[in-house]
C-alpha cells in the first residue's frame, strides 16, 4: 500500500466479510479498502467468490459476518436499491437496461423528472432528460449520435456507456462492474477501458471483476486475487505479471 493511500480515508472499507450458502463458505473473512479514484480489479477463478463478494457490497446479499463502511460510516443495506441510494452503483453483466427505450430514459429510469402541463397534468420532462443526458455523456466523453433511438439499435459498447452514464449521473461514490467486457469486441473493450479511466479521473473509484488479463492490466491500479472464498493477494498492478496473477489464482505459488 502506498504512502499516499495510508493518509487518505478509503471510500469503501469492508472487514471480515463472510457469506455462506448452506455448508459452503463462498466468501470467507475478506477485508478490503477502496480509495478515491482507484481502480481495483477483482481476479480469481470461476467460483472463487468474486460475484458473491460484490453482491454483499451492492446490497444483494446480507453478509453472514463482517462490516461495510462507506466514507467512514458503517452501512447495512436491505436491497440493491438502498445501495444505489447510498451511491454504490453496480453495472451488471446483463446491464439491466430496457432495450426498447432510449438512452435518456434508461439513464433516468425509476427516477424520471416531471413537469406540470397546464398546472395539473404531471408529465415526464423529456427535454430535461435529454439535456442532462447530453451533459453527463459529454463529461464522460461518450459520443452517441442519436439519443432518442432505442438502446436495442445501439452497439454493445454504446450500451455499456449508457449503463456507466447512468451510474455517474446519479453521483455514484463507487462503481462496481461485473465482467463489463465479456460480450464485447476488442475496439469496444477499449472504449470501456477509456470509460473506466474517465471515472477514475473524476475521482470515482471502480471495482471491476474480470477474467480478462488485458482488462486488468489496461485499467487496474491494484489487483485483489481471490481463491476459494479467500483473499489470497492484494498487489499493485505495476508490480506483477500475468503469470504471477495466474499462479495466485490457482494457488501454485
Amino acid at each position: 500500500m502506498s504512502e499516499q493511500n495510508a493518509t487518505r480515508e478509503p471510500v469503501l472499507r469492508a472487514t471480515g466479510l463472510i457469506k455462506r450458502f448452506g455448508g459452503l463458505t463462498a466468501v470467507n473473512d475478506v477485508s478490503l479498502d477502496i480509495y478515491p479514484g482507484e481502480v481495483v480489479a477483482l481476479a480469481g477463478d470461476n467460483g472463487a467468490g468474486k460475484s458473491t463478494l460484490i453482491k454483499m457490497i451492492s446490497g444483494v446479499y446480507r453478509p453472514d459476518g463482517g462490516h461495510i463502511y462507506l466514507e467512514g460510516r458503517e452501512i447495512t443495506m436491505a436491497s440493491p436499491l438502498e445501495a444505489r441510494g447510498l451511491g454504490i452503483e453496480t453495472i451488471y453483466q446483463d446491464l439491466a437496461l430496457c432495450e426498447n427505450l432510449d438512452a435518456t430514459v434508461n439513464i433516468f429510469l425509476g427516477r424520471e423528472p416531471t413537469k406540470r402541463l397546464l398546472g395539473i397534468f404531471k408529465q415526464v420532462d423529456r427535454g430535461h432528460m435529454l439535456a442532462e443526458s447530453n451533459k453527463v455523456l459529454e463529461r464522460l466523453d461518450i459520443k452517441i449520435p442519436n439519443l432518442r433511438r432505442p438502446i436495442r439499435q445501439m452497439s454493445g459498447g454504446q450500451r455499456q456507456a449508457v449503463a456507466i452514464a447512468r451510474a455517474v449521473y446519479w453521483n455514484a461514490r463507487l462503481v462496481i462492474m461485473d465482467e463489463p467486457t465479456a460480450a464485447l469486441g476488442v475496439p469496444e473493450q477499449r472504449k470501456v477501458h477509456e470509460l473506466v479511466k474517465t471515472l477514475k479521473a473524476q475521482n470515482v473509484p471502480v471495482i471491476i471483476i474480470s477474467h480478462n488479463m488485458q482488462d486488468i492490466f489496461a485499467v487496474a491500479d491494484r489487483i485483489i486475487v481471490m481463491r476459494r472464498g479467500q483473499k489470497v493477494g492484494d498487489v499493485r498492478a505495476a508490480e506483477v505479471t500475468d503469470d504471477d496473477l495466474v499462479s495466485m489464482m490457482v494457488g501454485a505459488a
Partner: peptide, 18 residues
C-alpha cells in the same frame, strides 16, 4: 413510461426501483 419499461425488461425495471 413504466408500462413500456416493464414490458421491455421487467428485471431492469425492478432494479431501477420501479
Amino acid at each position: 413510461l413504466h408500462t413500456y419499461a416493464i414490458g421491455g425488461n421487467k428485471e431492469a425495471a425492478m432494479r431501477a426501483g420501479i
